[in-house]
Structure formats: C-alpha cells, structure tokens
C-alpha cells in the first residue's frame, strides 16, 4: 500500500500541477508544438511518474539564446534557477500564489513556476537580473533601495519585476491601481509601504 495522496489544495486545482503530475508527458506534448511529440516518455506505472527523457530546448533569456537539457515536466523556474543560475527568481510557494518567481515573458509579468520550460521556447524571457548591468540599475531597483522596500529580500526580486512590468503597462498608475496591480505578490516581512511609495514615485514621473 502506498500512502502518497497529494497535499490538499482546496478547489484551486491548477493546470501546471496536473501537467507535471501523473501523465505529465502526454498532456504536455498536447500543448506544445509537434516537434516534441514522441520525445515524451510515458512510463507511468504504480504511482511512480517516469523520469521522462530529457530533451534539449532553446530559450531566449535576457536577450541571449541559451540551451538546456530538461524533461518536459520541468518548470521554467527550475531551469532558470538550477540550469542557468539565475536565482533572482525565488521558489517560495510552488503553487502560483506568491509571485516570488515573477519574470517577464514577452513583456508580461508571469509566475515562472506556472510555466513548463518547454512552453517558453520562442518567447522573450526577462528575469530580474536583466534590470541590472553592473552599477547601472533600473529605476525600480533604485526606488526599492530609496524607500527601503525590502527586508529579508526574498520576495523583493519578484516584486521588482512585477513593479517593472506593471509600470510598463500603466506608466501613470494611481495609488488604487498600484494596490490592485501589485496584488499578485506576497511579502512576509511587511515591506508593502515602501513598495507602494516606490511605485507611486515612479508612476508620478511617467513610469520609466
């Protein structure tokens, strides 16, 4: 007898959990283009998900083409962190709730834990590291420092990316819009006041 029921997550069944759980290979190939069909391992037996065959994928991350050898059940978050050493996106909730792993995909803020790596081929992926070049940093990072919008700092990079993406979409956001627009991220230390002040200041200058 095995005793491996999944953690109860209430009604919030999510697509990614389904994909990378039992039968991940079958479902995932249905989603991506035909090139990956047939590469998917389907050895699912006795409650053990097969390791699946790793395949080379090409990703465009921070403007550079990179390759990684991953099984199709591996998330974008894991590839960024474990294969590409881009650890600015953090793994915190792993249930697409907290935003600590926020990256930009084609300019939009996305939880990197909500995407399989193979889904992201051909897309423009930008991580928090792209907002810094040596001593030159994005005004959002400058603003986070100025308003002390961080404590332990573990949620901070995710918040920085979310703020950047949000202000790109709404350069003149109001206070209410900021409070709603940055509601996808969670901070435990309690840095929301500084983040709000930073976003407000940049929005008042036109969002750049």
């Amino acid at each position: 007898m095995h005793d491996h029921e999944e953690e109860s997550r209430g009604p919030g069944f999510n697509r990614r959990d389904f994909l990378r759980g039992s039968g991940a290979a079958v479902a995932a190939t249905a989603l991506v283009n035909g090139a990956h069909e047939g590469l998917a391992a389907q050895d699912v037996k006795k409650g053990v998900v097969a390791a699946g065959k790793a395949q080379d994928i090409k990703l465009k991350v921070n403007g550079k083409e990179v390759t990684a050898k991953v099984e199709n059940r591996v998330t974008l978050l894991d590839v960024l962190r474990d294969d590409l050493q881009l650890t600015g996106c953090k793994e915190v909730c792993d249930t697409t709730n907290c935003g600590a792993c926020t990256v930009m995909i084609d300019g939009k803020a996305v939880y990197a834990c909500s995407r399989l790596a193979i889904e992201c081929e051909g897309k423009d992926i930008k991580t928090v590291e792209s907002l810094r070049n040596g001593d030159t940093v994005d005004p959002v990072i400058t603003g986070f420092c100025k308003h002390d919008a961080m404590q332990c700092g573990f949620c901070t990079p995710g918040f920085v990316v979310a703020t950047r993406a949000f202000l790109n979409q709404k350069p003149n956001a109001s206070l209410e819009e900021i409070r709603k627009g940055l509601g996808g991220n969670i901070c435990r230390c309690g840095t929301y006041a500084g983040i709000t002040a930073c976003a407000m200041e940049i929005a008042q200058k036109g969002g750049a």
């Binding site: 962190r81 474990d82 050493q85 881009l86 650890t87 600015g88 996106c89 953090k90 793994e91 991580t127 928090v128 590291e129 907002l131 810094r132 940093v137 959002v140 990072i141 986070f144 420092c145 100025k146 002390d148 919008a149 961080m150 700092g153 573990f154 901070t156 990079p157 920085v160």
Partner: peptide, 27 residues
C-alpha cells in the same frame, strides 16, 4: 541611510542558501 546590500537583494544577485547551486549539487 539606504541599506548597503539593497541593490544586491533587489536585483536578485544576493545568494541565499536556497540559491546555492555549484555544479554537481543534488536536490
């Protein structure tokens, strides 16, 4: 005074235990 490690943290360059991943690391 702004914290001296602010940019490191906010830009994602600060390495936490959960980010330590030298080649060969097992998870």
């Amino acid at each position: 005074i702004q914290r001296i490690d602010g940019v490191e943290k906010a830009s994602g360059f600060a390495k936490y235990t959960n980010d330590i991943n030298p080649p060969g690391t097992l998870f």
